[in-house]
Design a protein around this nucleic acid. Structure first.
Length: 824
DNA sequence: AGCACGCCGACT
DNA sequence: GTCGGCGTGCTC
């Protein structure tokens, strides 16, 4: 064994395992897990790689040498790496994939090839046209990157031409690592270090007598930077100097040249600073006080506690109290929320309380902002400037925490905590429990409608449980009224899509100047069109779904791949011009309402109306300011919004939610309807929730009417056991995709057969899901149900091995297998 | 994920 | 005959 080398396991920003590199043993002290190095990878590229572990042992295959070191200090805590490893093994993906999701792009470096001309070689008489173009470009420009040349020549692959030029010794190439993150900096000035006392100032002014502008500027700076008290410690930005008086660059330059002031670059933040409210008094109600004591009591014995509190029961105040206490102990806090964009009210509230110690992190930040937040979390503990509290969406789980004391998972039941695509397909709620364990921290999960998984964990004693059943200010829960759609249809009493009951309630509310929310989910039928003559329905050419009609843009769109086409003038099959729109989308509801209630101001909150930046906020603000009378919305309106004046919530079509073919449809429907209901009735008046349904006798409504989550859970949990579903069993769904339907089928069948032989689980499929083709790819699904107490980790390994084996078979290399653990 | 290599069809 | 399409295999 070569004793002069040590070996490091590295992660590169490619969706693969780790790679081993070597470096001389003298540099061993620089090889710290969590630091980045630059390494060669493949034929001609360099990447930044993250050191995972260091060893003295030769890995048993060839290794390349580390090119250089990037960091003196780790960019993350080793506990983060532990979380990554857990995620990779639990969610069946590579560590490289986890790293891709975890590290902000700015910390991942990649080499760029630049091309430069070589002189001294005589030009041949003739060159291929492409090579001529390149040479000409090099003559007149600074060395371009390969990508720039590709763009310039509008060719997809310019590399062969460059290789040919290299062979002729006409050009050379360079591999440069580019640092993507540039910290934002401003030019500042300070009084020169050589000016040590008043005397020197006078002397300086003496020399400046002839340069009037410089004299004035110097005097200004001495005053502004409070030289006589602060000496040379303060700085002023160039912006301010130029702005404050009519000083020009030349005056500044003059002072610098004479050595009276010094320029320096100061890093500035891209992130807004929030000043905390100076005096924040938190008065907990008697019930909240009791709940707080109970939570702490639970934390003595349990690492995770579920806080079950109805809407508006004041969970937030409890969170704030617990965060304050944890921060006071010098520990970090992570507050996880679903879909950050939809919870801006909550963020604003918490930022107002915690000010600059609190940072926000989610996917809408750009790369530079993310690196900045990352570094601020990393810096916590070193100086006073780091973030101690992070409010964020699921990806904030990856921030480089070193000393977490508490993780709050708000709206624990929300499905958006689960990442679906791409890998890692992790559930932030569950990963939070693991992360907390690594830090010895506690987890508080809050919700008004617990997920069955979490509630089950409470029942088995794994999680602690605290309930908060009293609403704030004793606001009553809204009255739930069912409205029978079948009956109204039969009696021909329907007013467009409204039962007479809901219609009249809306009318009355409008008369009383009260607001109305109408809820229509996206699931179920959206707004497709159909030929009345032959039944033809326009379909997406890439996916097997019907196209949705959009009135606003007057075209047809696919909600899966974004494909759009013109609205056809006549049926493509029978050429009939009698084409009808079917179904009821939010857009159509808006239209109908405009006809029914022409005096009302109507707004719509869905994916289409909020696409513009701040579209969401604008619609919400209009409504909460009372400018809108009726708000129509999808799932979006259920998220953490508090309105004062909503007396009626109408659920246009409850059936499509309940009848969705999924084992969780009950749970979901209950969650959704109670969340929508929570928007109704505040402070002084009981609100009404009117549910339109064809099945008013459905048992689900009994639970909803009485808001009896417990009963719903107990009545339906047995069914889950009988049919082998969570929380009793663990699910893994495997999707097999290929452009060719037969290849997809064949690979899926082989996989299912192998799994049945090798894996101890109930295996269903392969079968085509409801949508069998998405973006040109046919897909089949295999579903596995595992006994919770079995050796799951081993089984997962088996699955990965089998999939790998099948991929190696002839013609199968382009088959895509995706493994989804704990699918939602 | 990139990127190189290699094997086939459509053009000068 | 060559250019360039993409299917396949490899990266310490």
């Amino acid at each position: 064994m070569d004793k002069s080398l040590i070996y490091i396991e590295c992660l590169l920003p490619v969706p693969l395992h780790t790679f081993t590199y070597h470096l001389p043993v003298e540099l061993a002290e620089k090889a710290i897990p969590g630091c980045r190095v630059i390494v060669p990878f493949g034929a001609r590229r360099f990447y930044s790689a993250l050191i995972v572990s260091v060893s003295n042992n030769h890995p048993g295959h060839e290794t390349k040498a580390v090119e250089s070191f990037l960091d003196g200090e780790p960019v993350l805590d080793v506990k983060c790496l532990e979380l990554w490893k857990w995620l990779a093994s639990y969610y069946c993906c590579s560590l490289g994939e986890v790293m891709k999701a975890a590290l902000p792009g700015g910390l991942k470096l990649e080499s760029q090839t630049t091309v430069y001309p070589l002189s001294g070689q005589t030009l041949p008489d003739s060159l291929p046209e492409l090579e001529e173009i390149i040479l000409q470009y090099l003559k007149d420009n600074k060395p371009p990157t390969i990508q720039q040349l590709n763009k310039l020549t509008r060719k997809s692959n310019i590399y062969p031409a460059i290789q040919s030029l290299i062979a002729k010794k006409l050009v050379g190439v360079d591999e440069d690592i580019v640092e993507k993150f540039k910290s934002k900096s401003e030019t500042h000035y300070r009084i020169s270090q050589s000016i040590t006392d008043e005397k020197r100032v006078e002397l300086a002014l003496e020399t400046l007598k002839k340069a009037k502008k410089q004299f004035e500027l110097f005097l200004f700076l001495i005053d502004e930077l409070d030289f006589f008290n602060q000496r040379n410690s303060l700085t002023i930005s160039k912006k301010e100097v130029v702005k404050s008086l009519k000083f020009t660059e030349s005056a500044i330059k003059g002072l610098i040249e004479k050595g009276f002031i010094e320029p320096l670059e100061i890093e500035t933040s891209r992130i807004d600073y929030h000043a905390p409210i100076s005096r924040f008094n938190l008065n907990l109600s008697e019930f909240q006080q009791k709940a707080l004591i109970e939570i702490k009591h639970q934390f003595e014995r349990k690492n995770v506690t579920l806080l079950h509190g109805v809407t508006a029961s004041g969970k937030t105040e409890l969170y704030i109290k617990l965060i304050q206490e944890t921060l006071a102990h010098g520990k970090q806090v992570l507050y996880l929320l679903p879909e950050i964009a939809l919870t801006s009210q909550m963020i604003e509230r918490l930022q107002a309380v915690f000010g600059a110690t609190a940072g926000v992190y989610h996917s809408r930040f750009n790369d530079s902002e993310r690196v900045e937040i990352w570094n601020k979390v990393l810096r916590f503990g070193n100086d006073g400037s780091g973030y101690q509290l992070i409010l964020g969406a699921r990806s904030s789980l990856f921030l480089p925490f070193s000393n977490l004391g508490l993780i709050i998972v708000d709206e624990e039941h929300e499905t958006s905590f689960k990442q679906f695509d791409p890998a890692p397909r992790y559930n932030a709620r569950d990963a939070a429990v693991v992360l907390a364990q690594l830090h010895g921290a506690k987890v508080l999960m809050g919700t008004a409608t617990p997920s069955f998984e979490s509630y089950h964990n409470v029942h088995t004693g794994k999680y602690g449980y605290v309930s908060l059943s009293q609403r704030f200010h004793n606001v009553e829960l809204p009255r739930i009224i069912l409205s029978d759609l079948s009956d109204a249809h039969k009696r021909k009493q329907m007013v467009s899509f409204l039962t007479p009951l809901l219609y009249n309630e809306i009318k009355n509310a409008l008369l009383n100047k009260e607001q109305i929310i109408l809820f229509k989910n996206r699931r179920g039928f959206s707004h497709y069109i159909q030929c009345k003559n032959c039944g033809w329905i326009p379909m997406c050419t890439h996916c097997d779904v019907s196209l949705t009609y959009h009135k606003y843009s007057h075209n047809l769109q696919c909600h899966y791949c974004g494909f759009s086409s013109k609205m056809p003038q006549h049926c493509e099959k029978c050429h009939s011009t009698d084409i009808l729109d079917k179904g009821l989308g939010t857009e159509k509801i808006e239209d109908e309402l405009n006809i029914l209630f022409p005096e009302a101001v109507i707004d719509r909150l869905d994916l289409d109306s909020t696409r513009k930046k701040f579209g969401h906020e604008k619609i919400i603000n209009r409504f909460s300011e009372g400018k809108t009378n009726i708000l129509i919305g999808t799932q979006m309106i259920t998220k953490g919004l508090d309105f004062e004046n909503v007396s009626i919530v109408g659920i246009v079509d409850a059936d499509s939610q309940m009848n969705f073919p999924d084992f969780r449809s009950y749970e979901r429907a209950f969650q959704l309807i109670s969340q929508v209901s929570g928007r109704a009735g505040r402070k002084n008046k009981q609100g009404k929730v009117i549910i339109q349904t064809h099945q008013p006798d459905h048992p689900l409504f009994k639970y909803i009417e009485t808001n009896n989550f417990d009963k719903m859970y107990n009545d339906t949990i047995t069914e889950r056991r009988i049919f082998q579903y969570p929380p009793w069993y663990r699910l893994i769904y495997i999707t097999v995709k290929h452009k060719n339907i037969d290849r997809a089928k064949l690979a899926a069948n082989i996989l299912a057969d192998e799994l049945k032989k090798e894996v101890k689980a109930t295996i269903l499929g392969p079968e085509f899901p409801a949508i069998s083709r998405i973006q040109q790819y046919y897909q089949l699904m295999i579903r596995l149900k595992f006994d919770k107490n079995g050796p799951l980790a081993q089984q997962k390994q088996n699955i990965i091995e089998i999939a790998k084996k099948i991929k190696q078979m002839e013609h199968n290399s382009s088959v895509i297998f995706t493994i989804d653990v704990d699918p939602i």
